[in-house]
Computed example of a mutant assay.
Amino acid sequence: MSTIPCNSESYRRNLAVAIKILCVLLMITVAMPLSSAAVTELSVYPDYPVVGEDIKINGTAQPDESIDVTVSFNQTVNVSNGTYEYRIDDVEIPDGSNTFQVTSEKVKDLNVRVKILFWITKSADAESGVATVSQSNVPSGTYDIIIDGQAEDGESTVNLTINASSSIKADTQGYFEETYATNSIPPGIFELNAGEINEIITLYEELVVIPPEYDVYDANQNYIIEIEEISAAADDYLAGQLPIIQISQLVDYFLSGDKY
């Protein structure tokens, strides 16, 4: 029986190359992300929400995917006689999977009291001044919540972080939408996370009125088109630099004498 000569040096080189290729393949496999509900688009309305006004979100994700949406805000609470307390009324918990979490900093302990038919309390002692209470799968409904506890010695304020998470499902086309009440959120900045998209939202105490932008030909920016301004617009129109629809609108503004 004939034998095939084996070059041991060549064999070792080929083995080393094969091992390197295998390692690279393993690294690529580990680095690949697991399948998740990837949100590709997210819109939030209105642009300038007021306390008590519903916020609506919509967007797109993978068809039939479940999307985790989290609303979170921070609140500084004053300390009185060594204790702190913060109350949130009319907290709306939606149907489906949800989690409500409170983290308190610069404290000895934390109590989260929820009124359903009667007050139910869940407590936690702090570690290094930080205490967290979390509850999942809260039955849907509207609740009053009191957050209180003992502050660390010498502290005049404590910091609270409140997170409310829920799961919504995209339809067969990947579209999803949801509405969130803001009556339990204080005015200021809060965050809304949907999938991997993060939106920073400012909640205002009163309606924000945004004045319209000035027309480019309104040189003195008084929202009135005057003779010099309509003349400049006419020159640009005659030079072919202004479309007829725009010069017509400007002429209407000029002839009316009113603010546009």
Rank of each mutant, 00 (worst) to 15 (best):
Y143N: 00
I146E: 15
P94F: 03
S43I: 04
V138K: 01
N220R: 13
I185D: 08
S80D: 15
Y48W: 15
E53G: 14
I93Q: 02
N74K: 13
I21H: 10
I19C: 06
E205G: 07
S165D: 11
N222C: 15
D68M: 10
V209T: 12
A233E: 03
L42P: 08
D144K: 01
G59Y: 06
Y237W: 10
T3F: 14
P186W: 07
L110A: 07
Q246A: 09
A194M: 05
E228K: 07
T103Q: 10
G59T: 04
K20Q: 11
E152A: 03
P46I: 05
V51L: 12
D235V: 15
S248L: 14
E41A: 03
I19T: 07
V50N: 04
L242T: 02
I224R: 12
I210A: 01
G52P: 14
D64G: 02
N159Y: 02
E152Q: 03
S166Y: 15
E92Q: 12
I227E: 06
S136R: 00
F73E: 05
L250T: 13
S248F: 14
T40V: 05
T83M: 09
F176P: 08
S2Q: 06
Q246G: 04
A131K: 02
S184P: 01
I210K: 06
Q173N: 10
I189M: 01
A170F: 13
D236P: 04
V138Y: 01
K122V: 14
D171E: 05
I189P: 00
P33H: 05
I210G: 04
V77E: 10
I244N: 06
P187V: 05
T76L: 11
A38C: 11
A126D: 05
I55P: 09
S231I: 07
I147Q: 07
D236M: 11
L42D: 15
D218N: 07
N193T: 10
I88L: 07
V71D: 12
N220C: 06
L25H: 00
V138M: 12
A124P: 09
L203N: 03
S36N: 10
P243I: 12
E155A: 03
T70I: 07
D171I: 07
I146D: 12
I147V: 11
K122D: 14
R87M: 11
A31Q: 11
T83F: 10
T103L: 00
E155D: 09
S156M: 13
N58Y: 02
F254L: 14
T60Q: 09
Y84E: 10
G59H: 00
L160N: 06
Q221V: 06
N222P: 05
N198Q: 11
Y204H: 15
L250N: 03
E191C: 00
P5Q: 06
Y217H: 13
A181G: 10
I225Q: 01
I93A: 07
F100G: 02
M32H: 08
N14T: 02
K106Y: 07
S256N: 11
N222W: 05
N163Q: 13
T70F: 04
